[in-house]
């Protein structure tokens, strides 16, 4: 196990190094940050001064060497725009994103898994067919459009829920959290539902596929032959097996939402990380882009690691070497 952890850690370092390098090359091809940061009427002298201040006046190779040295010293650089450490900016935004993502995944799982089990177990009923078509609709529905519709219905027409922002927050260990106040919870609902909808559909279809596959297996029939009730057969014997492949997807989807919930965050003016990435790309805020994508790759490696551990919990056949 220890060996495994060490192996994964080394893997992570390599992945992050590669990602950082690729991203570094890539951001160098983005627009000139000085031009984007300064007003359009800025003079060439001003631009030159700004470039020097951002450390962009040396050759890309020099810049890269400096970057590597700094990273080794744990310094990912300051945002060109905010003049604050890039990592600090990202971590500031992270709790907001985690809040909607965790809630969304939770809502999705809560609905998708029982429905998926039902649909997988009774594929030919009218209800199953309706659920399945509905899930297709959920998948093909653009997040953007759906979010706006929710706002128009629940905020503008009915006035039940706020359209945007985080509402009242409670500060816990420096993190601003919405879910601990009633007003905050009201603000959470719409963005979380928007994020959850596609998740829900994906999870439902995965659970269904898993169930259909598992229900064909001999051990299910054997369980029935033992006199196990249909409910226990589905939830006790079949579900755990059906969920094995779902776990990977669940983990990756989680990571994906955390890092790229941009659209939902933008619609609901939710001050999360995804928006930071897009804004940074738009104005070529290189340190933030690089730090962000390094963090993202680290997140995925960690999620994969957790998924692997979960696998051993769910599926005893898997052994971590």
């Amino acid at each position: 196990m220890l060996f495994y952890v060490i192996k994964r850690f080394i893997q992570m370092i390599i992945v992050i190094a590669i990602v950082a390098t690729i991203v570094f090359i890539f951001v160098n091809m983005l627009g000139d940050p000085a031009v984007l940061l300064l007003p359009p009427e800025a003079s060439p002298e001003e631009l030159a001064k700004a470039r020097a201040a951002m450390g962009l006046d040396s050759s890309p190779w020099e810049q890269y060497k400096l970057f590597v040295v700094n990273v080794i010293h744990g310094d990912l650089g300051n945002s060109f725009v905010f003049r604050e450490p890039a990592m600090k900016l990202i971590f500031e935004r992270m709790p907001a994103t985690l809040e909607i993502v965790v809630l969304a995944m939770f809502i999705a799982a809560l609905i998708a898994i029982p429905l998926g089990v039902y649909v997988g177990a009774h594929p030919n009923t009218f209800a199953s067919r309706s659920i399945l078509s509905l899930s297709l609709l959920c998948i093909s529905m653009p997040t953007f459009w759906f979010g706006i519709v929710l706002i128009l219905v629940f905020s503008v027409q009915l006035g039940w829920l706020p359209s945007s922002g985080r509402g009242d927050v409670v500060i816990v260990w420096g993190m601003r959290l919405s879910f601990l106040t009633w007003d905050g919870i009201k603000h959470l609902i719409l963005p979380a539902i928007t994020l959850a909808v596609q998740q829900l559909a994906t999870q439902l279809r995965l659970t269904r596929a898993g169930m259909m596959e598992v229900l064909r297996q001999d051990y299910i029939k054997f369980a029935k032959a033992k006199g196990v009730s249909p409910h226990d057969v589905l939830y006790g014997h079949a579900l755990k097996n059906a969920l094995i492949p779902v776990i990977t997807v669940y983990g990756l989807e989680f990571g994906g939402l955390v890092v790229f919930a941009t659209i939902t965050e933008t619609i609901f003016a939710w001050p999360g990380m995804g928006k930071l990435l897009i804004d940074s790309i738009n104005i070529s805020d290189r340190p933030v882009i690089i730090a962000y994508l390094m963090l993202a790759s680290m997140l995925f490696v960690v999620i994969n690691f957790i998924v692997d551990i979960l696998y051993t919990v769910v599926d005893p056949r898997i052994d971590l070497r």
């Binding site: 297996q217 001999d218 051990y219 029939k221 054997f222 369980a223 032959a225 033992k226 014997h237 755990k240 097996n241 094995i244 769910v314 599926d315 005893p316 056949r317």
Partner: peptide
Amino acid sequence: ISMIFQDPMTSLNPVYT
């Protein structure tokens, strides 16, 4: 009435002891 299945490799649920 209990039953013994044809294929022992697949008759037991892999995720339970």
